[in-house]
Design a binder for these strands. Structure first.
Lengths: 359, 359
DNA sequence: GAATCCAGATGAAGCGCTTCAATTTAGCAA
DNA sequence: TTGCTAAATTGAAGCGCTTCATCTGGATTC
C-alpha cells in the first residue's frame, strides 16, 4: 500500500514496474490486460510491483499504441434539460456494463461549442461519439465520420439515414397528448408555444393536428412563441383567459413542460381551475414536472432508454464487422397526472422518490 | 476543401502532411503549434496540406509526447441538481477563455463511479481536475495528488487545507434564510428536512440557529428527513398543519428547494396561504424555483462563479510555479420571492427568460 | 570579403504503451 | 532420454507527436 510520491518527478512507467518485478515490459502489459495469458507467478509479481510503485497506466500512451481508446464521448445539447440528463444516465449505465467510460461535453445550445467538442472527441480518437445535435447543420457529423470516427445521433437526425440514430416519435407524442385531451371530452384545444423551426415542435403539432382531425368535432388553435420557457406559457395563458368564455380553450397542450408550467400557474392565478376549466398537458416529463402546483400530465420520452440504445448501436458498430446502420424510433408514453385528471391523477411517490413512469 | 476519406484505413499523420507539404516533420509541428516560429511560406504550405488531407491531430500522441494535456476534467456529483449544472457552465466558460476544454463526468451520487472517473482523468493525464466530492472519504483526492495530478475541490472540502477549494458559506446561508423570516416578523420557525449527515445541511441548520438565538424571542424547530426530495416536504407540511393553531410554524426554511416546493404545495393543498400564514424559503435557487405555484424565495449559491473560480485556481496552480493553495469561500445570496414576500416578490422575467439573481 | 548572427528548418530521440514474431520453458507421450 | 506441442516470456518495432540540438543560408557588420 506504500505508493510513493512522484520521486524525481516522473510518474512510474511500465518499464519501472517491469524492472521491479523482474520481468519484461511485454509481460507487464500482458499481466495488466490479459491476465489469463500470464503465469500466476508473474501476475503476482507484477501486481505487487504496481502496488508498490503506485503505477497508473498512461491512457494516452495506451490509446496511441493500441490505436484506439475505450472511452465514449457524449456531446449534449443542454445539460439543463432533464431529457438530456436522462440520456446521459442511460448511456452511462449501459456503457459501464461493457467497460466503457462515458465522458460528457455540454454544448449549451451553442453551435460552435458543439462542433468544438466533436473535434475534441475526434482528436482523442474515442471509441465512438454519441451526439444530440442542435436543429442545425450536421456538418460536424460528416467531418468526424470522414475521419473514421463512429457516431450515433440521438434525439434528432435531420433525416439522415447514413448513420445510426435513436429518435423519439414526436408526431405520435403530439397525437397522444391531443388524443388524451379529446378523450377527456375537451373540444377547444390550444397548442401553446414553441418555435416552429424546431423539428420536434413541428412534429408534435402535426400529431396534435392529426388527432383533432380524426376526432372531427374539435378545433386546434396554435399560438407559437420564440422560446420554450415558462414565461411564454404565462403570456399565452394570460391572453386566452381574457377572451369571451366560449373562446377560452378547455384543453391546452404544450411542446414543453416549462411552458405548460407557466400556463398552469397563470391560469390558476386568474382563478381558473385546472383541470376542471382547462386541462393542461406538457411534454418531456421533466424532473420538475411533479414539483409544480399540481402535478403535470405530460408525454415522456424515455431518455434513459434512448441513451442506452444509442450505446448499444455504437457497440455493435464497434464490434460487429457486418454492422448495418439502424434508426431506432422509440414511442413516447403518455403520463396523465393531476393537470388533466384532477386529484385522482395524483402520483404515488415510490420509495426512492422517483415517480412511476407508467401511465 | 477536398478532405479525402480514410484511404487505406489509416488516418493521415503529421508525417503525411510533412511529405505533402515538402517540409520536415518538425516544421509541421511548429506550424501547428507556434506559427510565429515558422516562415509564412512554410506555414501556408503546411496549412494547405492539412486541409487537403483532412488531417486531424492525434491528441493521445500529442499529450504523450508533450507529457501533458490541455483538457480539464470535472467530476460532478449530480448532473440533475442545477447547482452542479451552473458549476459546470461556469467552469466551461472560464476554461474556454484560456483554451482548455472541459470534459464532464457524472458520478450520479455514487462513490464508486466518482472514484472511477477520478482515475480515468488521472490516467488521461489531464491538465487538472475539478471535483465536487460526495460527503464521504476523500481518498481519491490523495490518490490522484500522489500521482502529481492537480485537483481543485468544489462545494465540499471536508476541512482539507492541502489543496485549492471553492466553497460556499453554508452557515451564513442558513443564517440569512432564518434572518429573512425573522425580519418579516415570523417567530415560530421550522427547519424542514435534510439528513444531518450532510455537511451542508448541518451548517445551514447551525446558521439558522444562530439567527434565532440572536433574535431572542423566536424558536426554531427541527425536523429532519432521509432525503432532500419534495415528498419529504409534503410529509413534513402535512404533519405540522395537523397541529393546534398556535403550534403551527409561521416560517419554514428548508435546506433544499425541492423540499420547500413540497412544503409549499402541501400547505396550499391544505388551505393555508403562503406566505400570509406560513412563509417558506428554500435553498439552492434551483432552476425550477420559479416554475412552482408561487415563485420560491431561496438562498442562491453562485454556481457559475464557483466553477469559474475553481478553474482560475487550477490555472494558477498550472502556470504559477510559486502557487499556493487557497480556499475560496463565497457568500451565498438571499433571493426573496413570492413565497416569503407575497405578490410583491413576483419576479420580472428578463428578456432572455432567466431571472435576475439580485435580491 | 571575412566574420558574425539569427530566423528557419531539420532530423532524431523519445514519450509509455501494445503487439507480434521469435524464443525459451514446461508438459507430457513414447 | 528424445521429440514434440503448448504455454509463457521476451525484445523490438512502432503508434504520432514534441522538442532540442544541430545545421543552413541569407542578412548585417566592420
Amino acid at each position: 500500500m506504500t505508493s510513493q510520491t512522484a520521486d524525481g518527478g516522473r510518474a512510474p512507467s511500465m518499464q519501472d514496474v517491469a524492472r521491479l518485478a523482474g520481468v519484461s515490459l511485454g509481460t507487464v502489459s500482458h499481466a495488466l490486460n490479459k491476465p489469463e495469458k500470464v503465469s500466476a507467478r508473474s501476475l503476482q509479481k507484477v501486481l505487487a510491483a504496481v502496488e508498490q510503485l503506485g503505477f497508473v497506466p498512461n491512457s494516452a500512451a495506451r490509446s496511441l499504441a493500441a490505436g484506439s481508446s475505450s472511452t465514449v464521448g457524449l456531446v449534449l445539447t443542454d445539460i439543463d434539460n432533464s431529457l438530456f440528463v436522462d440520456i446521459a444516465r442511460g448511456a452511462e449505465d449501459e456503457a459501464r456494463t461493457s467497460g466503457h467510460a462515458l465522458l460528457l461535453a455540454n454544448s449549451d445550445v451553442d453551435f460552435k461549442r458543439q462542433e468544438s467538442y466533436l473535434d475534441i472527441f475526434d482528436e482523442a480518437r474515442v471509441a465512438g461519439i454519441l451526439f444530440t445535435p442542435l436543429n442545425a447543420s450536421l456538418e460536424g457529423v460528416d467531418r468526424v465520420r470522414r475521419h473514421g470516427r463512429r457516431i450515433v445521433l440521438v434525439n434528432y437526425a435531420g433525416g439522415r439515414q447514413d448513420c445510426c440514430a435513436v429518435l423519439s416519435d414526436e408526431e405520435y407524442g403530439g397525437y397522444m397528448a391531443a388524443r388524451h385531451l379529446l378523450e377527456l371530452g375537451r373540444r377547444r384545444l390550444l397548442f401553446a408555444g414553441g418555435p416552429e423551426e424546431f423539428h420536434a415542435v413541428k412534429e408534435r403539432r402535426n400529431g396534435a393536428l392529426r388527432a383533432v382531425m380524426e376526432a372531427g368535432n374539435a378545433t386546434l388553435e396554435i399560438i407559437s412563441s420564440r422560446r420554450l420557457k415558462s414565461d411564454e406559457g404565462r403570456k399565452i395563458a394570460a391572453e386566452v383567459t381574457g377572451r369571451p368564455a366560449d373562446r377560452v380553450p378547455d384543453g391546452i397542450l404544450s411542446p414543453s413542460d416549462r411552458i405548460a408550467a407557466g400556463v398552469i400557474h397563470e391560469l390558476m392565478a386568474r382563478g381558473l381551475r385546472v383541470p376542471e376549466d382547462v386541462a393542461v398537458i406538457g411534454y418531456d416529463n421533466n424532473h420538475f414536472a411533479t414539483e409544480v402546483a399540481i402535478s403535470m400530465s405530460t408525454v415522456a420520452q424515455d431518455g434513459h432508454k434512448m441513451g442506452a440504445e444509442a450505446i448499444n448501436l455504437l457497440l455493435d458498430e464497434i464490434r460487429n464487422p457486418r454492422h448495418e446502420h439502424r434508426i431506432l424510433t422509440l414511442k413516447p408514453r403518455l403520463i396523465p397526472r393531476e393537470s388533466t385528471l384532477g386529484p385522482s391523477g395524483r402520483p404515488v411517490p415510490e420509495e426512492d422518490g422517483r415517480l412511476p413512469l407508467e401511465a
